[in-house]
Design a protein around this nucleic acid. Structure first.
Lengths: 211, 211
DNA sequence: TCTGCTCATTCTGTATACAAAACGGATAAA
DNA sequence: TTTATCCGTTTTGTATACAGAATGAGCAGA
């Protein structure tokens, strides 16, 4: 693996897990020394993070970890709703019904998982859903746009202290989306996606308020 | 201006204007010599172009100018429809009616421009419309996604030999969108945007067929 | 004649040295 | 006391040298 890829993955992980907090200055010299590589591949990693929006280079010469504010999350979710409702609609046209039937069943069983405390298994299920959506979409350009959103979402989700009740409702919302896609009902799938996203955003914003 | 920025702008311009054709190999050594800079800033420029999708580095070690096929354009327009219909809907909620009234008037007068042969003035008007949409959106994240689309669209549009009749219909389609946004009718604005994009895509694909 | 291997060439990936520019602090003047 | 300017320090931006890897040609063997 290239040193620049290694640096990118390491820094991305640290940003997404909030070990590198928003506003942290990213000095090339310090980071290169800490990661044990030279500045050349490190610069490539920072450039990539900057283009993906995790690093902000617009203010001053030194890059800083980009901000996560209520305003920026709200903007992110407006874009997310546009993309995911359209994705759900398109996936409804092209899906393999059996795939989404199986996912619907798993989401129906998810409350049991959650009541056992296995939150990781639930998030793995959501990841499976995202992957199935990508396959059903059959559009690499669209998938690239979705991936960009998911990157920022992964960071925002870390601050939302999901409680059990919210996660159980989230599972039911996902079940509805899967059932709609399974049935080829794009309009319903889009509406169910909107419902889910509004609730998710509200949860994240509420968490932000109390901090 | 930094050498890397200069290289990025130059290469982007050459790709968008088809002076660098899809499939062209982009050797770092050759390009650095031609642009009169060293490989270090050139690599930064190539990395940026790669992340934006104008350069494809997935196959082999050497980057090549990314492909423009009917399939990739169709995928691009699926994403574009998702983004622009949502943008039109959101802009309808937040627009300054006077701005879009003025744009609607200009699009109504555009056929006169076009019949005089002033195609550049028409494309400038479309650019003004895009800018007004960005302002009305009031969402920097969303705008970034739209800019990514417009980059690829600029390249695709170069191969569509727009005839006068198509451009006149395009002006009328834009006038409808502006009127809908002016009136705050988001649903109509989204529908009119869909109509416009379907016609644009058909024109580009038809041009591709005949080549 | 075709296939597979070897070797040379060329390109990319990385490190480092140097240049230029920007930031911060200190000092002096208003 | 405040502000502006100068200078030192630090950081980024660029060039170049070197190492590693991949590709293609050429040759040998089947």
């Amino acid at each position: 693996m290239r040193a620049s890829d290694k640096a990118y993955q390491e820094l991305r992980e640290e940003i997404l897990t909030w070990r590198l907090l928003p506003g942290t200055a990213l000095s090339e010299i310090d980071l290169a020394e800490r990661l044990g590589i030279s500045r050349t591949p490190l610069r490539a990693a920072l450039a990539r993070l900057s283009l993906e929006g995790l690093v902000d280079t617009s203010r001053g010469r030194t890059g800083v970890v980009s901000d996560v504010s209520a305003a920026s999350i709200t903007e992110l979710f407006e874009l997310r709703e546009a993309l995911e409702t359209a994705a759900a609609r398109l996936a409804s046209l092209r899906r393999d019904p059996a795939v989404f039937e199986r996912l619907a069943e798993r989401f129906e069983a998810a409350p049991l998982l959650l009541k056992r405390g296995d939150v990781d298994a639930y998030y793995a299920l959501v990841a499976d859903f995202d992957a199935a959506l990508d396959v059903a979409l059959g559009n690499a350009v669209f998938r690239g746009a979705l991936d960009g959103i998911r990157l920022h979402l992964a960071r925002a989700r870390r601050i939302a202290t999901d409680n059990l009740e919210r996660l159980i409702r989230s599972a039911e919302e996902h079940r509805l989306i899967c059932a709609a896609i399974r049935d080829g009902d794009g309009t319903f799938a889009a509406s169910a996606t909107t419902v889910h996203l509004k609730a998710s955003l509200a949860t994240i914003l509420a968490t932000l308020e109390t901090r």
